[in-house]
């Protein structure tokens, strides 16, 4: 069953199909939050919030639209809500050391120094640049899908991706 077909079932009140949707997408949503915030525990809380919102907002989903884009838009909005309700957390973000959790994936392909270098570079670039890199490079959203998530045109996404790669490269070599 496709995501849209699963959501159609959920909309009809067959909530058990939410389990499949969660299993398919929770790691992606968690990684979006983890890379945006650097905080594993907060990322798990926000991931839970997103899937609770999917259930509450099930009737707002239009089966004709891309589910992944709708889901990531919900994630983006949840993160913004979090920042607005706890501005201090956003301000102190850079002061928080990268937390190495016991459940970090063993398959990490980078050596620890390079990994730290990438994380530091990601921390130093603008929020909007980091977001577009995560959506397009890690989550493999098409420009049209990323445009729906971020709320800008497809051309603007493309321009933002270019600027983000440029600023990431500068941060990477200066970190």
């Amino acid at each position: 069953m496709t995501d849209s077909e699963l959501m159609a079932k959920v909309k009809q009140g067959e909530l058990r199909f939410m389990s499949d949707i969660f299993n398919r997408h929770h790691v992606s949503i968690y990684n979006y939050f983890k890379k945006m915030t650097g905080r594993p525990s907060l990322s798990e809380d926000l991931t839970q919030t997103v899937f609770e919102k999917v259930i509450r907002s099930k009737h707002a989903y239009n089966e004709q639209s891309a589910f992944k884009a709708w889901l990531f838009k919900m994630a983006k909005n949840s993160l913004m809500d979090h920042y607005r309700s706890n501005k201090k957390m956003q301000i102190t973000y850079d002061k928080i050391p990268e937390q190495v959790s016991f459940y970090d994936d063993d398959s990490e392909k980078l050596d620890p120094d390079l990994k730290a270098k990438v994380h530091n570079a990601l921390k130093r670039i603008k929020h909007e640049h980091k977001e577009i890199l995560i959506l397009t490079r890690f989550e493999n959203l098409q420009y049209a899908e990323a445009a729906a998530v971020v709320g800008i045109s497809e051309n603007a996404v493309k321009a933002r991706v270019f600027r983000a790669i440029k600023s990431f490269k500068e941060a990477y070599y200066n970190s």
């Binding site: 929770h26 790691v27 992606s28 968690y30 990684n31 983890k34 890379k35 594993p40 990322s43 798990e44 991931t47 959790s101 459940y103 970090d104 994936d105 398959s107 990490e108 392909k109 980078l110 390079l114 990994k115 990438v118 994380h119 570079a121 990601l122 890199l133 490079r137 890690f138 990431f168 990477y172």
Partner: peptide, 9 residues
Amino acid sequence: LDKLAAETP
């Protein structure tokens, strides 16, 4: 950047 692997919650 691309080699930064996904983490498991």
